[in-house]
Design a protein around this nucleic acid. Structure first.
Lengths: 200, 200
DNA sequence: CAATTATAAGTAAATGTTTATTTATTTATA
DNA sequence: TATAAATAAATAAACATTTACTTATAATTG
């Protein structure tokens, strides 16, 4: 029996992410993708049930899982608040900076009903990738180090400026100077943390 | 000559925003929109050149302009940092909370190449709606009240958690309790501001 | 001041194109 | 040589946009 060509599988995934990043999800068509990946349209259907299946698997397995793993790499719940938070920020910045198309799909997952649904289902099935962060913040709040707020609010205060700064980073790649550097990111992390601390 | 039916024009715009908010931009079709607005497809083309023109005009005139006006309502550059920032937060929260479909399109404008392009062009043409906020923050930084950082970074630190909290607000409309209240928003505003202040 | 007319607004149905998906066939290798 | 992988080409549905026509009313006329 003829074996799978794994390079073709990878080409389909990579080109799908590229097209979405450069032209948006509404401009990804199966025939355009097939041409870009140098593959027959039928080949995509050997690997995925349909377009929806492709998009969901692309999002979950190609983007979300490696992203969340990268964010948590070297992070442990028992870290000091400042050390742990900086670790999360640096991990996130480094991963997204080096994976523009992944960042693009993550952003799309906030507005696409399809991906949003997939995300919520995945969260339930996998029992929260981000549970360590949840426990990390809950422990710091209990210890009186940071303000005691619902997790979703803590996460918004602590992490959403970083996502915005990554957007700025990519906007600035088309301009003469890059203002979003690692130093700036660390400085912003300090600022965001200081707002959440209890001891002023 | 037969006069325009302004109700039909409004129905087209309102239903377009509704479809985008509920089904995403990739699921807005001209025939679906025509049916939803109780109008012939041709009628849409009397008012807009094509789908692209519809989306751009919808975004700029129906969403972006009223949104930016609402955010700046009652705000002046010479306000105290805390008062001014709270005003911006409250204006933004109130407007978006009451205009879910506008919020949805604003979120789409971050990922849709079409809308992103429209936004950048509009910013140039209109000479920055947000210039007052720029001058407000620059003045506070110059006066040594807040940290001296590039405007885009200040804006990310100060406003992006709010947008995330609005997302949370809408997520929570489908759950038993609403944790994102005006009080919580004001508390978060204080936290975000405190991180940016120079005098600790 | 009615009746008529010119004209843009509006419609139903059609058109040609693009799209997701399938059919029929070939290819590579265990 | 059996079998899944892969392809080129076809198909049917969905789509943006247009054609050919009807309608409502402001302006004009008798």
């Amino acid at each position: 029996m003829r074996p799978k060509n794994l390079e073709k599988e990878q080409a389909i995934r990579t080109m799908a992410l590229d097209i979405i990043a450069n032209e948006g999800m509404e401009n990804l068509t199966m025939q355009k993708l097939a041409k870009a990946a140098n593959v027959s349209p039928r080949t995509i259907y050997i690997k995925y049930d349909d377009k929806e299946d492709l998009l969901i698997k692309l999002f979950i397995y190609e983007v979300l899982a490696p992203y969340e793993a990268a964010v948590l790499d070297g992070f442990t719940e028992d870290m000091d608040f400042s050390i742990g938070t900086k670790k999360l920020w640096m991990n996130t910045f480094t991963y997204l900076k080096n994976n523009r198309s992944h960042f693009a799909l993550l952003q799309h997952s906030k507005t696409s009903p399809l991906l949003h649904k997939a995300y919520q289902q995945e969260n339930i099935v996998q029992g929260q990738y981000f549970a360590p962060i949840h426990r990390f913040l809950t422990a710091k709040a209990k210890a009186g180090i940071i303000k005691d707020l619902p997790f979703d609010i803590q996460r918004a205060l602590l992490m959403s400026p970083l996502i915005d700064l990554v957007s700025e980073y990519f906007d600035h790649t088309t301009r003469p100077v890059q203002i979003i550097t690692e130093d700036v990111i660390m400085q912003c992390c300090e600022i965001v943390m200081s707002g959440l601390l209890t001891n002023k």
